[in-house]
């Protein structure tokens, strides 16, 4: 019985001493952390995907609070997240729109059927791109290796049977990892309200691109002619200048390969 009491007293005493010392240390060593950081961190998605360019959600929150990052800097959280961050930081979040990847190549197996060579290596775009530019005749088009599908942290990308990736927009958070993974920069991040795209990146001369891919922009410049700068020609490729673009001036049905298109945006 005596041992019992002594044991309890000993452990109690030791615990008391250490607890006291730690309480003292906590007072002396407390870190003044801006409480905003954890509040911002709470409204972030917490996926730590790095899509914002910082080392994770917490790092992003720190940089937002320190004014080094924009409140709209999180591409994953979308406008909802941006507006909550903006509320915490006391600023406006107007002008943020959901970003979505657009795959600017329509040259799948059926359209770009002509092959330069057989490819038998690892099924990865970056590997295929290294080996003399993949198996397609086109050096600008989608390789179909699925690096973007593998890079997507949200399973929002699939590879179609035509060997072109497709975005499942309901799952997409707009983090932009697919665009970074694409060795040919075919995937671009665009605000979701943008409707007009040139679905081709080929800068081949008109004859070549016409011969090797049915969906290529052949550089005929029909779309550019009356667009008042909305579409400019750059190395045999129509490039859209979104600031000057007036969609009604573009004769979409005149495009011989239908590579400049107006897509329909689902209303939600």
């Amino acid at each position: 019985m005596e041992t019992f009491l002594i044991a309890i007293a000993t452990m109690g005493g030791l615990g008391f001493i250490f607890a006291g010392a730690l309480a003292l240390a906590d007072k002396k060593l407390s870190v003044e952390e801006n409480p905003l950081i954890s509040r911002v961190n709470e409204v972030l998605p917490g996926a730590n995907c790095g899509g914002c360019g910082f080392a994770g959600c917490y790092d992003f929150a720190t940089n937002v609070v320190e004014g080094k990052a924009k409140v709209t800097g999180c591409p994953v959280g979308g406008s909802e997240c941006a507006s909550s961050v903006a509320t915490i930081m006391g600023v406006d979040s107007d002008g943020l729109e959901r970003m979505i990847p657009r795959i600017l190549c329509l040259g799948g197996y059926t359209e770009a059927a002509q092959k330069m060579a057989g490819y038998n290596g690892p099924l990865s775009c970056s590997a295929m791109d290294l080996v003399s530019g993949g198996d397609k005749m086109c050096f600008y088009g989608c390789l179909g290796g699925g690096d973007c599908v593998a890079a997507c942290p949200f399973n929002a990308m699939i590879m179609t049977s035509n060997a072109l990736p497709e975005v499942i927009e309901d799952l997409c958070t707009g983090c932009g990892m697919c665009a970074k993974a694409c060795p040919r920069d075919i995937i671009e991040m665009h605000p979701i309200s943008r409707e007009v795209f040139v679905f081709c990146k080929s800068q081949d001369d008109p004859k070549t691109s016409k011969a090797i891919c049915a969906a290529a922009c052949i550089g005929c410049s029909i779309c550019a002619r009356k667009s008042d700068g909305g579409v400019v020609m750059n190395n045999n490729l129509a490039v859209i200048n979104y600031e000057l673009l007036e969609p009604e001036k573009i004769p979409f049905d005149k495009c011989p390969t239908n590579s400049i298109r107006k897509i329909s945006i689902p209303v939600n």
């Binding site: 452990m11 730690l22 407390s30």
Partner: peptide, 20 residues
């Protein structure tokens, strides 16, 4: 149990110190 108490307290202290 007493050793663990000592070690745990020390680690807690080191953690505070490094955080500071």
């Amino acid at each position: 149990v007493s050793f663990i108490l000592v070690i745990a307290s020390l680690v807690q202290f080191v953690e505070m110190f490094i955080k500071k």
